[in-house]
Nucleic acid binder design. Sequence first.
DNA 1: CTTCTGGTAGACTGATCGGTCTACCGGGCA
DNA 2: TGCCCGGTAGACCGATCAGTCTACCAGAAG
Lengths: 207, 207
Amino acid sequence: MAAVHPGQHKSFSLPPARERIDRAAYELFSRHGVRAVGVDAVVARAGVAKKTLYLYYPSKEKLALAFLQRREALWTQAWLQEGVNRRARRPADRLVAVFDLFDSWFHRSDYEACAFIRVLFEHDDPAHPIRKSTEDHIRTIRDFVRQLAEEARVRDPDGFARQWQIVMMGSIIAAYAGDRDAARRAKKLGVLLLADAGIRSRSRARI
Amino acid sequence: MAAVHPGQHKSFSLPPARERIDRAAYELFSRHGVRAVGVDAVVARAGVAKKTLYLYYPSKEKLALAFLQRREALWTQAWLQEGVNRRARRPADRLVAVFDLFDSWFHRSDYEACAFIRVLFEHDDPAHPIRKSTEDHIRTIRDFVRQLAEEARVRDPDGFARQWQIVMMGSIIAAYAGDRDAARRAKKLGVLLLADAGIRSRSRARI
DNA sequence: CTTCTGGTAGACTGATCGGTCTACCGGGCA
DNA sequence: TGCCCGGTAGACCGATCAGTCTACCAGAAG
């Protein structure tokens, strides 16, 4: 028994098998949802034996929860949060930059919409762990928006963040239903909201 | 062979069996979506033989399309459109009344969110007939909003309607994710939009 | 009376689901 | 050399899926 953690490879990285499973689950669940994708499809895409998947995850549900975690790491944090922080400095401009990011997202040919909303709709039982997890991840996004709102000295940061997120989610649906310019329309709404909150955003003139 | 239309009962009404099927499908598909509900569940709830369902509908897909039609009749027309027309007279006030209706909807204990959005997310293939149908029904709702926007003499009725629908759909998701006051927040957004379009709504003072 | 019709009850098919299990394999290490 | 271990390939299980089929039944019509 060597002094390595269980599940840890000798090269001090995750076993390639597990990483391939996580990646395959991410690609399939992001695009098609959890219900529509069977474990056989995940296993086939990962190029892995079924038993290997069940070595790392005791059930499909746990795999789905891990997928939602990964979605938060890759989408919410690495893409959305780092994206807006890179695009602007002032908090109000960072808020508006959300919709600039959305605009490029909506125009991707493989636009897959929001996995959290998609999986949220797959479970109508409010007590189901997967549903509660999606609500947590949606709340995390709102917390990020509220943080920016506080930095921008908005009057009611919580109410502002909830309104902002309504516009975010609504534009995601609109884009998925065919309106690829939904981000541009959402941006106008955002600028209106900021103006109403007494904040002047630099991006206003650019519309 | 009597002179009655095929499929028509002697009492000049739809056969009770078919009506029970449609009602059962409506209740189940509205709440849980199409994918999550099996035909056996529909049949059981309707108290009908499986063969009877397949007498009226050649496949589950056709049943789902009929359900979406019924949803438009009951939700879009009878509930939403007639509701706002009853609540207000001036077009701008009717627009705002959408969110008053939403508020009572969101606070129902059996709030089921929007079936069109739910079913839209169930099908990622843009060419799938069910997905195209949901997009049609979403467009129908937007047409209704645009009609009101035109009557309210809004500058860009199409753009306005698309923004209005972004707020509508976003609030539906927010409410489903736990924020039961989403309609109140959406109403504020709507009033902002109307004010920006140069329209003064009567409901502004009431917020 | 018989016959036709619209319906019921439910067995059945083949596919697919999540999940388990056996048998095997190859590289590193003692 | 031989063993352990992470992994593969894939058969298998019971449940459920959409959809079909047989057998039966009640009421109205001729």
